[in-house]
Design a protein around this nucleic acid. Sequence first.
DNA 1: GCCACCTACTGAACTTGTTGACTAGGTCGA
DNA 2: TCGACCTAGTCAACAAGTTCAGTAGGTGGC
Lengths: 189, 189
Amino acid sequence: MSLRNAVMATLLDGEASGYDLAKAFDASVANFWMCTPQQLYRELDRMESDGLVVARTVEQERRPNKRLFSLTDRGLEALAEFTAGPHKPTAIRDELLVAVMAADDNAEAVTASIQERKRWAEAKIARYDRLRVKLLGGRTEDEYLTTAERVGPYLTLLRGLSFERDNVRWCARCLTVLERRGARLDAPA
Amino acid sequence: MSLRNAVMATLLDGEASGYDLAKAFDASVANFWMCTPQQLYRELDRMESDGLVVARTVEQERRPNKRLFSLTDRGLEALAEFTAGPHKPTAIRDELLVAVMAADDNAEAVTASIQERKRWAEAKIARYDRLRVKLLGGRTEDEYLTTAERVGPYLTLLRGLSFERDNVRWCARCLTVLERRGARLDAPA
DNA sequence: GCCACCTACTGAACTTGTTGACTAGGTCGA
DNA sequence: TCGACCTAGTCAACAAGTTCAGTAGGTGGC
């Protein structure tokens, strides 16, 4: 029931197609609300029939037509109601952490997975940094935060950034620990 | 399909009832794998019929009977297969972040939510710290990490700890930013 | 000139996850 | 002795999420 709110918050940036939303989610919303494109398309249909968004079809040449969605007043209202209300605690699902919990029986494989995650987090940091620079648009952060119309998307981006940086640090720590234990097991003093 | 792996990783600590698992999840696994008790009970039944766990019923006086589950060899194998394999990227769902993304239209309410989240994260840090002290059992971290039989659960605990500390920092930052903007809007120089 | 990826979706089947209510006795504090 | 919370679950209904496949033309590189 709450994917809609993430969609509406994204539509505050202006009208977008399902496809646009999928890209936007992939680029930054995924940090706090993961979903597949299929979910978006389905949810957008429902939201339209609930009157939260309206679609306008844009015919395109040499490309499939697209439907651009934008928020209605009802949508804005629903979003405001959501932001006012209480929020469920963070729900995380991370298979790597499950694997780490069981790592002691399979240290090598898990080590490889941690290394991969570390690289992946580093790549994500680079992408977020680029997005950040783009959002700031030449202003300093301080200028931006006091003068920009909206700071919400910037604040969520900061959360994603620090989450991934934290990930990198934690991965490094795990690697050190597992490596040392590996050495100890190979040559137990 | 992957809740089972979280359950099996938890059962490495020894046999447990559905109720015990629910508590264990609540205390620490929830950081990387959220689930409701109902999910656990249902999944345990399925795992039993798949031969990954065995149950032994313990009759109790003055208390409902319980079924203690433990890993079978098949379960251990399945877990090893999982830890070896590739892992899906982290999936996060956080309503507060959705609200923050839309915060610019409703700063006061969102500010309150952020404050609440901050307090909640601080409480969680305190609980994790207690768990950590308990796990260490008087040893220094270094001693523990080189000598303990299993370090997996400790490493995941560290991830939870740093996640919540990061949460607290981010909340504080958001509050500062929103407060300053609030002041600016009330008295626009 | 072929392969791979991009735009922009749609559909159906299936698996997971959530919510609420119910059972039933025990313990603990005011 | 009353209400609140703890142990230890079960059941049913519903909502949400995942997976796989398909459509169909366009663009870009080697």
